[in-house]
């Protein structure tokens, strides 16, 4: 712990890193057409949030942030499972996992 502060890394560094990862994640979700890539980007966004939780928890000396991260991780696992299941179904039907096939799911 001490060595992190020793090399001059503070709360802001964490937050900036997390913001960058979050933004990359958003870009991925918005602009990638491959569903697998989109799901990965979504994971990125969630993990960026996790990073902020941990950073705040650490620097404020409070464990609540760490606990929250466990919840987010379980949620992320469930979400990835469902997302991948849909992706598999789409692949079976169209032999591709492009997001534009989701339009076909309109009633």
């Amino acid at each position: 712990m001490q060595n992190i502060e020793a090399i001059g890394i503070g709360q802001n560094h964490y937050l900036i890193l997390s913001a960058i990862i979050f933004s990359i994640g958003i870009m991925g979700v918005l602009f990638r057409k491959n569903i697998i890539m989109m799901l990965m980007s979504l994971e990125l966004m969630l993990n960026a949030i996790n990073l902020t939780f941990i950073a705040f928890g650490y620097f404020n000396g409070n464990l609540n942030g760490q606990i929250m991260v466990f919840f987010v991780m379980t949620l992320a696992a469930a979400e990835a499972a469902i997302g991948l299941a849909i992706a598999v179904m789409i692949y079976r039907k169209f032999n591709e996992v492009n997001i534009r096939y989701f339009e076909q799911m309109k009633g």
Binding site: I26, V29, L30, F31, I99, R100, F102, E103, K106
Partner: peptide, 13 residues
């Protein structure tokens, strides 16, 4: 409202 998921995501953003 064109059914494209990514556009909806953009609106949310």
């Amino acid at each position: 409202q064109n059914g494209q998921t990514q556009q909806y995501a953009l609106y949310i953003l």
